[in-house]
Amino acid sequence: MSLSREQLAMRVARELQDGYYVNLGIGIPTLVANYVPEGMNVMLQSENGLLGMGPFPTEQQLDADMINAGKQTVTAVQGASIFSSAESFAMIRGGHVDLTVLGAFEVDVHGNIASWMIPGKLIKGMGGAMDLVAGADNIVVTMTHASKHGESKLLPQCSLPLTGAGCIKKVVTDLAYVEIADGKFWLKERAPGISVDEIVAKTAGELVVPEVVPEMEF
């Protein structure tokens, strides 16, 4: 069985470490916040200017002046800080965020990522995604391995306009955990019950497969 959205988030959560400052993108990455291991402290950065994002507010706590980068009303945890957009992106661009998690349409063997623009469709904008991928050293991309029509999203070369060049090293898909190095994909883990053959069939870019591919743990 391919991973559910929740399982994807659970696998990404294994990349967290105690004391990490983490930026989570919109969609599946946001769910990672639900799977922070017990006893571990991480601080969530929201690029509109909040370090230490907390859960959604109760009706009593609701405040129009407290939102996250998805424009949802949120709270701040104890020890949070709030600052300007320039300060926020100084943190991001300056490489101070320990882990960035975001979605994508495509990645390729060169570590390129395309996540914001499909030519011919309405283009809404890149928001902070280009800054996040350019500034972070430790990025995890979460996405489905192939499109609904079975077309691979792990490519020899991205076909869509890029969000960033040569910046992606880790990809968690619904079928596998793959790393990118030396112009190749490296298969590290497979989703429970998924065969290596299926992963190979759905990976268009060059994939290095070790003799033993362990199943993912959550």
């Binding site: 957009s85 320039a86 992106f89 280009m130």
Partner: peptide, 28 residues
């Protein structure tokens, strides 16, 4: 890009006409 936009305003106000950033390199 959002960070570039923030920095364009900051730099504009601070008398800096332009700046280099890795954001957007290799993209449209």
């Amino acid at each position: 890009p959002q960070g570039t936009l923030a920095e364009k305003m900051r730099a504009g106000g601070a008398g800096i006409p332009a700046f280099y950033t890795a954001t957007g390199y290799g993209t449209p």
